[in-house]
Design a protein around this nucleic acid. Sequence first.
DNA 1: TTGACAAAATGAACACTGTTCATTATATTT
DNA 2: AAATATAATGAACAGTGTTCATTTTGTCAA
Lengths: 206, 206
Amino acid sequence: MSIADRKDREKKELTELILKEARALFLEEGFEKTSIRRIADRIEYSPATIYLYFKDKNDLLLALHQESFTHLFEALSSVASVPDAFERLVALGKAYIEYGLKNPEEYELMFMLSAPLEALECRHELWCDGQKAIDLVKMMVDDCKAHGYFRKDLDPDTTAIMLWAQVHGLVSLYLKQRFKMFQDQDQKKLIDKTFGLFIKTLQCFR
Amino acid sequence: MSIADRKDREKKELTELILKEARALFLEEGFEKTSIRRIADRIEYSPATIYLYFKDKNDLLLALHQESFTHLFEALSSVASVPDAFERLVALGKAYIEYGLKNPEEYELMFMLSAPLEALECRHELWCDGQKAIDLVKMMVDDCKAHGYFRKDLDPDTTAIMLWAQVHGLVSLYLKQRFKMFQDQDQKKLIDKTFGLFIKTLQCFR
DNA sequence: TTGACAAAATGAACACTGTTCATTATATTT
DNA sequence: AAATATAATGAACAGTGTTCATTTTGTCAA
């Protein structure tokens, strides 16, 4: 049936047009300004049409959130080329922080907003993008163990969460202006310095 | 002039009535449901009246935010009685986490929402509540140095930020449902375990 | 006590928001 | 060409923060 095929294709095309313009609006003007009506304006359809392609706004934001994760994993993929296991873990942390600072809106969508997780919740689905991310950290922790950087009895799950919480703490406090009180110092250097100290601290895992 | 005094008092009283009901609404139904109109309903004034007492919603949220800090400092004050310097730092971290988990809305207001900091920004004021909080951590880090738990060359500023970022990372990821993917385990125990590991890690500062 | 003035409170409006649904327009099938 | 299925929409609902002309209330001097 080529006509059903075309219908499927058209459905997919409009879905992606919505996402494309939603993404553009999201990156240009941020989460707050990304309204259904403004997306509708950009794609030249009525607001109601969007609801034929997405259950609600959370559902649309979940789709954007998933695209952002692909973007994040791209940004993190370069660290794979770092030969040393511990240096690789350090590079991962640095790349994560850099991604957060350079893509604030996407970072918020992935790790700070409730919307995408609410969409998953009502679909009875788990946050597998997050699982993939923490698995990446866990693997690198295991590598560090294998190469003698971390003790063998170290729990990789707990360690991965600790690493994640540290970098997320730094990025999210920065993004929400909580480092502006350190007015004299450069905020980004402060993050680097803190991350550096954290890395030093990790060396006692040996 | 007793009449000017009474006017001042009345101004203060209504300001505090607004804050009282705003706070109640905020705690009962959360940030999202705390609208100017609903506050107005509760205090039995028109929405426009609120704007005679607060510049805008951010300004009102800043006032709530400051009240929350008093509440936080109260919750943290008990750790002062812990005799050992390092144990005191650990107790501070635990108390901070516990406060965050038990008072999610207040925690978000203090450390995750933009609103209060935007209000400060347009007043050209600094986030002195935040400064007081980080100073508390810094003092305890200094205590640890003084009692031989941390090396003398450790930078207390960077260390304080690292400690803060760690606990904030844990609390904020939890509050934004990012730990729900670890479905089998108890999320709060996961936080405790991670914080425990972090504390162990700190012992290499000796 | 009354009139003039100042202060406080408000109703209504503006420009938005997400979402739903009966109606209309388009496309496909009989 | 008529009947049916699919797609798109206009209009409405209920809500948001905010502003401002208008009205109400309170104070003070004549």
